[in-house]
Write a protein that binds this DNA or RNA. Structure first.
Length: 149
DNA sequence: TAGGCCATCTGGTCCT
DNA sequence: AGGACCAGATGGCCTA
């Protein structure tokens, strides 16, 4: 994908101030060996960095799968994924706190019927899924809206 | 074509 | 010394 800019700066700074132990005769050889080693190390570091970033992206993909998207056909950006995860966690925390406050299931459902959404009461009682695509109830629960920043 | 998003390279810093 | 992590730079791809 990217053009190879390899070794553009490989010889800058790395060789400065280093003397060849075996005298000037091998200076060229030692110098080229050092260059070679430096290039190898750089290449290895690049590969490690690539793997590290791939691991990070895998983690982002896993996070995308568990975070609500409400029918967005376009996948969330990394920033949006983090924002959505934050909202999602906060919403779940809130639900948990409510559930604790209203000790019985019926109290909790009554609370929701009263304060949030009449329609969702039916789902709650019948055990049907509430949070679906573009569901306004869910939209309200999880406050994150992809916006321009 | 500009802007957003992304992958990759790179050098610096910190840690083991 | 070498690896992990980070941030800046760069350039490609895609979309409005």
């Amino acid at each position: 994908m990217k053009p190879c800019k390899l070794n553009n700066n490989m010889d800058s700074g790395l060789e400065a101030g280093i003397q060849c132990r075996n005298g000037t005769a091998c200076a060229a050889k030692c110098g080229s060996e050092r260059l070679e080693n430096a290039a190898k190390r750089r290449l290895a570091a690049n590969a490690r960095e690539r793997r590290r970033m791939q691991g990070l992206n895998t983690a982002f993909d896993r996070l995308r799968k568990v975070v609500p998207q409400w029918g967005q056909d376009k996948k969330l950006s990394k920033y949006e994924t983090l924002q959505m995860a934050l909202s999602y966690i906060m919403a779940l925390t809130r639900i948990l706190a409510e559930a604790e406050r209203y000790s019985t299931e019926k109290d909790w459902i009554d609370f929701h019927c009263e304060h949030l959404h009449q329609e969702s009461c039916h789902h709650a009682y019948t055990g049907q899924k509430v949070a679906g695509e573009a569901d306004p109830y869910a939209q309200r629960l999880f406050s994150f809206q992809p916006d321009h920043y």
